[in-house]
Design a protein around this nucleic acid. Structure first.
Lengths: 230, 230
DNA sequence: GTCGGAACTATTGTCAACAATTTCGTCGAT
DNA sequence: ATCGACGAAATTGTTGACAATAGTTCCGAC
């Protein structure tokens, strides 16, 4: 099984997840070219696989596909990141409201637990755990709301934000600011106050927007030709 | 140029728009199979074109792509249509608010004009015109808001609703109910009252949800194999 | 008559070679 | 030195044939 090239629709999925991973790991930077042959060699897949995987990623808004000129990692400007977050505010507000309205007792208990663990993580200064809990919280709220459509849209939007989310989480003082916001969302949902839950979710993401506004402009990063690890 | 088959990325676009059109015209019903060869013949395109177009449509949520089993027109349940409309409410609320906040004087004037024409169309009982103005209004608000991301998501969501939108517009008494709602949205945006604009947009779509709830269940429509006109 | 299975058909998936296009470097003229 | 034209290399796009799979029909045994 040394150089058995991956193929078919399975390979297509493998290739796209490999690129996705490389993207969120920072191995691929925005603007970077994605050459089909290079990828097919480094990932041991057929060019066809790679091609189709790139189409999928383009449909998700992760790469930009210019005809006859190949694929690039899509550059998400700060302005666009702000707009994405505004959409997230609207959609997560919806999810929070619905979650508050009809969540089971166990689900509410689960929320409370995540809140407690978040408090702990921040107290311990454990950024990684806090970041993971953050994702877990937002995902749980989306699931609790029963809003599958909104959940799908949110996944999409978050996928396009990987770079910024990474950057924001590392900001000094960020956890101290976001923790109470998260706790407020949890409190409102547990209490069953839909209106408050929506307001809290919106307030949280408005704060993220504030943070984004203070983001230094990113240089267009034209070069950086490097491979994706298999 | 009788049977010069369309090809390439241009053909891909042509095929996908042809299918889109057939879909919203009702020539293709939910659940219907889309066989690559049939389509390539009726649309004078290569199978490759059709294949790629189908991928695009699947990415937009218009068709369902089952591996080794081909493409079908995706069936959108009433429940899902409701969820889609809830997302629309959240996103159009955002757009209305932003439009109210920073729209130019000419844009506000344009809104007012659409409102007047809507009134006329309803008074004349001209359903087609009213329906067209409806789409125009929503599109204009999205554009005025400057929210490109939200606009893109909304286009996507509306695309999945074609069948229901068609059905709802024909409902007796529907225009009489929706006209004042549309006028309220316009009024709030023209006035510059973001909060009211958001509330009005939401109220409008909540009313659409009410209407959807009163929709009879659609039969799964399994058969109906018919061609797409070129 | 019904069930199971075997051939057959219809349909999608894959590939490798070829075509077309862009990009980059080189060379010559001004 | 700068600019433009030309050509070579790199890269994407396209095609048609073939492989693999799902669906269907038909036949025979019980």
């Amino acid at each position: 099984m040394a150089d058995n090239r991956v193929t078919g629709q399975e390979g297509r999925r493998l290739v796209s997840t490999a690129i996705r991973r490389a993207l969120s790991a920072g191995d691929l930077v925005p603007g970077q070219r994605l050459v089909e042959q290079e990828l097919s060699e480094s990932l041991h897949a057929t060019r066809n696989c790679v091609r189709e995987a790139l189409q999928d990623l383009a449909a998700e808004g992760l790469v930009e596909l210019v005809p006859r000129r190949g694929a690039r990692v899509r550059v998400v400007s700060v302005e666009e990141a702000i707009q994405i977050t505004e959409c997230r505010a609207a959609l997560e507000g919806l999810c929070a409201r619905r979650a508050a309205q009809h969540a089971s007792a166990e689900q509410r208990e689960g929320l409370r637990e995540i809140g407690a663990r978040m408090r702990e993580a921040v107290a311990d200064g454990d950024l990684n755990t806090y970041s993971a809990l953050n994702r877990e919280l937002h995902a749980l709220i989306a699931e609790m709301s029963g809003q599958k459509v909104a959940g799908g849209l949110l996944d999409r939007l978050k996928g396009q934000m990987v770079r910024y989310q990474f950057r924001l989480a590392l900001r000094p003082g960020r956890p101290a600011k976001s923790l109470p916001q998260h706790l407020a969302i949890i409190e409102a949902i547990v209490t069953g106050d839909g209106h408050a839950a929506e307001a809290a979710a919106r307030a949280h993401l408005d704060s993220v927007i504030e943070e984004l506004r203070a983001t230094p402009v990113t240089e267009p990063t034209r070069s950086a030709t490097h491979a994706v690890r298999a």
